[in-house]
């Protein structure tokens, strides 16, 4: 079966940047509104991935070298490391507080 891909030719840098910006905004929205710590961490992953989309789009469309791709790979590795640490910390929070609602974990004095 043949698929008509000619429409893809008009996809440019702007489209990727807009997707990146939308992902970034959704990430911020999740961090600000969610009460569950895991959901907040997922929002942060969205922000990191929006930066990755930007890096790769810029690398493809506006510069000749591969440094943007490399940057994206490093950010992916780092996101994995950060997620591992953060989830370990959230697990420890659950052991101590029996909840992961970040509004309820507020024993330190304001």
């Amino acid at each position: 079966m043949l698929v008509n891909l000619s429409g893809l030719k008009s996809v440019g840098l702007e489209h990727f940047l807009i997707i990146g910006a939308i992902l970034f905004s959704l990430g911020i929205y999740a961090v600000v509104t969610r009460k569950n710590a895991i959901m907040v961490l997922m929002g942060i992953e969205l922000i990191l991935n929006s930066a990755n989309i930007n890096f790769i789009a810029f690398s493809k469309y506006s510069t000749a070298d591969l440094s943007g791709h490399l940057a994206a790979i490093f950010v992916i590795i780092l996101a994995a490391a950060e997620a591992a640490i953060a989830i370990a910390i959230v697990l420890n929070i659950y052991k101590n507080f029996l909840t992961i609602n970040i509004d309820e974990i507020d024993n330190l004095k304001r």
Binding site: F24, V31, V40, I44, I47, F58, F97
Partner: peptide, 28 residues
């Protein structure tokens, strides 16, 4: 101690996310 580390990781990860997005814009 565990509350401190959770607050730290959430604020820290958020601001480093903002930073990498800024870096990607400078790269562009």
């Amino acid at each position: 101690s565990s509350e401190a580390s959770m607050k730290y990781v959430i604020y820290g990860a958020l601001s480093s996310g903002l930073m990498i997005y800024g870096i990607s814009l400078v790269y562009g």
